[in-house]
């Protein structure tokens, strides 16, 4: 069995309203020195089979469902 951790991040130049709103709210709560907040989505996927195979199939999952290439980058870490 392999466990893959998939991180879906927004591409550079794509607005991140969730991150920006969180940044604003943290400021309102009195947290100082917060420079930026970015939102990231993480999926943890357990698969059968060995690591190399898992990597390939999770790549395919990212391409077909988990990420939209217009705004997303993804990275995969096999644990």
């Amino acid at each position: 069995m392999a466990v893959a951790e998939v991180r879906i991040t927004l591409k550079k130049g794509v607005a991140d309203p969730e991150g920006k709103n969180t940044l604003k709210a943290l400021g309102l709560l009195g947290f100082e020195g917060v420079r930026d907040v970015r939102s990231v989505k993480v999926f943890v996927i357990e698969t059968e089979g060995e690591a190399g195979e898992a990597k390939r199939s999770v790549e395919e999952m990212c391409r077909k469902l988990l990420a939209n290439p217009v705004i997303h980058n993804y990275s995969i870490r096999i644990k």
Partner: peptide, 9 residues
């Protein structure tokens, strides 16, 4: 293309 989160979040 994508329909992404509103600017207002």
């Amino acid at each position: 293309a994508v329909l992404s989160t509103n600017d207002s979040a």
